[in-house]
Each structure stands twice: as C-alpha cells, then as structure tokens.
Design a protein around this nucleic acid. Structure first.
Length: 426
RNA sequence: GGAGGAGUGGCAGAGUGGUUGAAUGCACCGGUCUUGAAAACCGGCGUACUCGCAAGGGUACCGGGGGUUCGAAUCCCUCCUCCUCCGCCA
C-alpha cells in the first residue's frame, strides 16, 4: 500500500510511475480522490479528538465535583458530555466510512515503479537485461518433453496426483523425488552460504499474515482457504517469512536481514489454465526456496542487484541456459517497484520458462506490515523489503530433464551430485 | 475436546472505577565522578494518528473486538494466546 503522505508530497512522480503501468489519465484521478478522502479523514479526526479532549476534561471535573459533594453541578456537566457523545457517535460513524473508503481506494493503487523501470504494455516490452549468448544444448532429434521423460524414467506422475487430489498435484517418485529433495537442499545450502538465515515456517497462515504481504485482499482468489479455521495455505514462503517482522522495529545495525526458506507453495491458479501449461509448467502445489531481505532504503537497489547475481550463480551452477529480463511497467506485479525475472531455456519445448522473480518492494509491503527500523538518532523509518525465488523447482526440474537428456539417460549437473548421490537418471 | 488459572511498556512486576501512558526494579541512552572502566549519583527512555513554521500541544492504545459508565488497565460479554490438570495422540 502506498502511503498517503507520499501521494500528497510527491504526486508528480507517482503519476509518472502509474503512466509507466499504462494507467490512463482517468484512472490516475483516483489519486485526487484519495487526497480528498484523506482531507476529510483528517478533518473528522481533528474534530473527534477535540471533542474527546473536551469530554475528558469535563469528566475529570465531574469527579472533583462529586468528591466535593456538588451533585447538581456534576449533573449539569454530565448532560453536556452526553450531548458531545451523540455528536461523537455520528462523527465516528462518518469517520469509519471515510477510512474504509480511503483504504479501498488505496488498495487499487499499485506500487510506483522505480525510475529505471522501462515503459511497456506487456511481456513483449520487457528488456532483456542479460541474454544467453552461448549455443543452446544440442538435443537428439527425438528429444522428449519433461512429461514424457517423467514417464520414461518414472520420475513423477500426474495421474496418481489426480487420484489423490486433483489436476496439478504431481506425485514425485524414485529418482524424481530424490532429485526434488536434492534441489531443495542445494538451493538452501547456497543461500545459507550467501548469508541468508534458514527459516522453516508454517505452511498455513492466519488472516493478519495474509494481509501483511498483500495477499488479502488483492489476491484472495489465488489462495486455498481453510475456512473452518480461518487459515490460508501459503502461496509462497514470502508470506510467512516477511511477516516474521510484522509490527517490528529493528535497530538499524541489524540491517540487512536475510532469510531463506523452503516451503511448498499452494496456488489455485484460477483461470490461469490454457496453452503452455502441460506438465510441470504450471501446477497447484510446487516447491520453492525463497530469499527475503529487509534493507535500509539507501541500499535496497544495491541489494536487489546482489540478489540477482546470487540467483545467476545458482543458474550457472546448474549449467542451465538462462536469461534475465527487466520487467516493464505493464508486466510488473502490483506490489513491486522493480522486478527482474529469470527464465530458463526448455530445450524440448523450445521456449523460455520463468523460474525466478526478484523484486524490490521498497516500502509498499513494509507500510502495511509496519516493518520499521530505528536509526542512530532514534528516529523510526519504514524499511525496504525485497524477495526472490532461489529457486522455484518445477520448471528447473523440467529444464534439467529436457536439456540434459542423452541416449544413455539424463545427465545431472556436477553441483547436484553430492545431494542426489547419483549422476545419471537412466 | 473438558476443568481451572493467567495475559500490563525491551524484560520483570505494581496497579480492581476518577489527573495512570501507567509505580518500582532491570536493561538501554546521555551526564557527573574516574587515568580508563565498574560502582554511586543526576537526567532521559513506547507506538500510531493528528494540530503547529517551530517550541510545543491533542487523541488513541495495558492480548483482539464489543459493551456498561460522566469517567475503565480496573466491571461485563466474546474471541485469541499461554500455563496447570484430565482425555486423545505422532
């Protein structure tokens, strides 16, 4: 959520940002509605506070009069207070309406893209930040897509998943299951080496937590809900991990705070099914290792690049052809100020698959989370939050299987050997 | 799941209807003293919203929400969490 204060003080840059997200002049007018609603909110608040202050004073007087036995005078003041209370009731009712309205408006405004974010309407306008320049792996003419390789080597099974749960819940087995576990281990170890503290969070979260990172109310339809208990299945580790510091004030010297977490991710993906979703390209439950960073505002963009380089190293160690995209305003997520996407080349499908998204949210999340830090002078500021996948497993697995297939079997990259215990799937 | 007890500032812990945003201690920050440190002493030390150029005000918050009252940390209702006992159980 954007801070109203920022809209008030720096409307011009926000307007520019929204234009990058292809907002029309008509849409941008919501900023004026927000300022208007906030003006009303403040005026009401002032009025309410003044009346409350008056009542407080009068109540103290009543206390004194009672103590002195001046009942009549006390009664007179009581009626005065009663009159104020009636006004207060009305003012508070109106104030609640205005606040709700204001919040509703604020929820519709996405984060303001950083000035380095390119304009653009869709994925086609994303800038290639780093391209793959080497030749792609040469595959045999009868190269199989990962879903066929899975059958051939008995690595995972969608039909069984349907039997147990439904479409999009694969059952991994044998070397497929072990490879999955090895990847998780590999990612976690690499992240820990890079200074991230490992977190193993709950996979179900309450409403406050879902609200903290903006899953509620924005993406309610994307989450699985346990209605009876008021809990949500996490769509990403970002949710529980970033919320660790909800309502917290950390000392400046503790920054940056770096977390990494493996969790399964549950996504309803309502309405997202169509072309290109075969096999592991899109599923309802998948595994992901996430990195989260809480940063000083002055260093968050440096941190973003560090995270990009870190994910890059992971890709290199996995020996996978990849490219990095700098997302344009039109393709960026609602909450992000700047995002880099990583795509891996799927040799058999002959297409790029997104495997990581690394973003700086600046204060968009921390405002709602009330995640702050205290500087050397004791002043409190909102921290910047960043996160990225390092990495999401299914498409990495797909690319590993497809790109490394040989007549003898599937060859695994060296960095994984110590985690898998085998070098080939055959 | 059943019975009982408890939730107060970073921590410990007073406070059961009237100027208590909250005693006291510890921790922390600044100062005096000291060659330095410790001890001792003095002072400071919550967050959010809001008014003000500022100095400085105002309001709210004692697990969450609601209620009673002129007035609530204090009384009532409800939910949550923790502890003890019973039951169940990996």
């Amino acid at each position: 959520m954007l801070q109203v204060k920022r809209i008030r003080e720096d409307k011009k840059s926000i307007v520019n940002g929204l234009r990058k997200r292809n907002w029309t002049a008509q849409q941008i007018k919501v900023l004026d509605d927000i300022l208007k609603a906030d003006d009303e909110r403040r005026a009401l608040q002032k009025h309410i506070d003044d009346l409350l202050a008056e009542n407080k004073r009068l109540s103290a007087q009543i206390g004194q009069l009672m103590a002195q036995g001046k009942r009549d005078e006390a009664e007179k003041i009581k009626s005065q207070v009663a009159a104020h209370k009636e006004s207060l009731r009305q003012l508070e009712e109106r104030s609640d309406e205005v606040k709700k309205h204001l919040e509703g408006l604020l929820y519709t405004v996405p984060n303001c893209p950083h000035r380095s974010v390119p304009k653009g309407k869709s994925a086609e306008d994303n800038k290639i930040f780093r391209d793959w320049t080497k030749p792609f792996p040469s595959l045999p003419p009868d190269a199989l897509a990962h879903w066929d390789l899975a059958k051939k080597y008995n690595l995972f099974d969608f039909e069984l998943g349907v039997k147990l749960t439904g479409a999009g819940f694969p059952v991994y087995r044998g070397k497929g299951a072990k490879l999955q576990r090895a990847l998780i281990q590999f990612f976690l170890e690499e992240n820990i080496k890079a200074g991230y503290e490992e977190i193993l969070p709950p996979h179900l979260v309450n409403e406050d937590t879902a609200r903290g990172t903006g899953q509620l109310p924005d993406k309610e339809g994307q989450m699985y809900v346990c209605e009876r208990d008021g809990l949500y299945l996490i769509p990403t580790a970002e949710v529980p991990v970033t919320n660790l510091l909800r309502d917290a004030i950390v000392p400046e010297r503790d920054l940056p705070i770096r977390y990494t977490a493996y969790t399964p991710c549950f996504r309803r993906e309502a309405g997202a099914w169509g072309a290109h979703v075969r096999g592991l390209n899109r599923v309802h439950q998948f595994d992901k290792v996430e990195i989260v960073r809480i940063e000083h505002p002055e260093r968050s963009y440096k941190a973003l690049m560090e995270m990009v380089r870190h994910v890059q190293r992971l890709m290199t160690k996995l020996e996978l052809p990849y490219r990095i995209l700098l997302l344009c305003g039109g393709d960026m997520g609602f909450t992000s100020a700047k995002t880099f996407d990583f795509e891996v080349w799927s040799g058999a499908q002959q297409r790029w698959l997104e495997v990581s998204s690394v973003s700086n949210f600046e204060t968009f999340q921390s405002y709602r989370l009330q995640l702050r830090y205290r500087d050397a002078e004791g002043k409190i500021h909102l921290a910047h939050t960043l996160n990225g996948s390092a990495l999401a497993l299914p498409r990495i697995l797909a690319a590993l299987l497809e790109n490394n297939q040989t007549p003898e079997g599937i060859r695994l990259p060296k960095s994984l050997h110590k985690y898998t215990g085998f070098r080939m799937i055959s």
